[in-house]
C-alpha cells in the first residue's frame, strides 16, 4: 500500500496515462489517414473525433484545463459536427481503393523525412527545463494575458472570424446576384 501511494504521488500514474493517451491519439490518427477496414469519410471523421478527445486528455496531463475543454468544445463539438454535416449532405459514397502512386508515396516520405530532420535538430537545441513556479491551468491568467499582451491578435482574429462568416454565407448561396 505504501509503495503504491508513493508511486501515485511520484507521478507514475501520470506517466502511464501519458502513454495511454499518446497511443490512443496516434492509433486514431492512423485510422483517420489510412483505415484498412473502411474508406468511408464518416469513419475518418469519427476517428478524428476520438483523436481530438484523447488529445484533450494529453492537454489535461499538461495541466491546460481550459484548453482541454475548449479543444473538445470547439473541435469535437462544432468543427467535427460540421464535417459530418457536410459529409452527409454531399452523400459521399465509399471511395474505391486506388493504387498508391509511387510519386505520392515518395513525396510523402521525403516530406516526413524533412520534418523529422527539423524535429531532431530542434531536440538537439532544446534547453533544459526552465526554472520557476510550475503553471497550473490558470484560466484567469490566460484571460489576462489574452486581453493585455495579445489584444491586437485577439482583435485581428475576431475580424478574421467575421470575414470568414461573411465569406461562408456568400459562398453557400446558390446564386450570386
Amino acid at each position: 500500500m505504501e509503495q503504491i501511494n508513493n508511486l501515485v504521488n511520484g507521478g507514475a500514474v501520470e506517466d502511464v496515462l501519458f502513454y495511454v493517451f499518446a497511443a490512443l491519439t496516434l492509433l486514431c490518427a492512423i485510422l483517420v489517414v489510412a483505415n484498412p477496414f473502411s474508406r468511408s469519410p464518416v469513419t475518418s471523421a469519427m476517428f478524428l473525433v476520438l483523436t481530438i478527445i484523447s488529445m484533450s486528455g494529453l492537454f489535461l496531463l499538461l495541466h491546460a484545463f481550459f484548453l482541454a475543454a475548449v479543444q473538445i468544445l470547439v473541435y469535437a463539438g462544432a468543427v467535427m459536427v460540421l464535417f459530418l454535416f457536410v459529409i452527409m449532405l454531399l452523400d459521399l459514397k465509399e471511395e474505391a481503393r486506388r493504387k498508391i502512386k509511387f510519386f505520392g508515396l515518395a513525396a510523402g516520405l521525403v516530406s516526413v523525412g524533412i520534418v523529422f530532420s527539423i524535429f531532431v535538430k530542434s531536440l538537439a537545441s532544446l534547453q533544459p527545463e526552465a526554472a520557476g513556479p510550475a503553471l497550473e491551468g490558470e484560466t484567469y491568467a490566460l484571460g489576462k494575458l489574452l486581453f493585455t499582451q495579445y489584444t491586437l491578435p485577439f482583435e485581428i482574429v475576431s475580424v478574421l472570424l467575421l470575414v470568414a462568416m461573411i465569406g461562408v454565407i456568400l459562398l453557400s448561396k446558390r446564386k450570386l446576384e
Binding site: V70, V79, P133, L135, A141, L146, Q149, F154, V157, L161
Partner: peptide, 22 residues
C-alpha cells in the same frame, strides 16, 4: 512555465474553426 504557448493555441483553434467553415 509561460502561458504564451497556450494563448497561441487559443488563436490556432479559433483560426481553425474559421478555416474549416470556409
Amino acid at each position: 512555465h509561460k502561458l504564451d504557448g497556450q494563448v497561441l493555441v487559443f488563436f490556432i483553434i479559433t483560426v481553425a474553426a474559421a478555416e474549416v467553415a470556409v
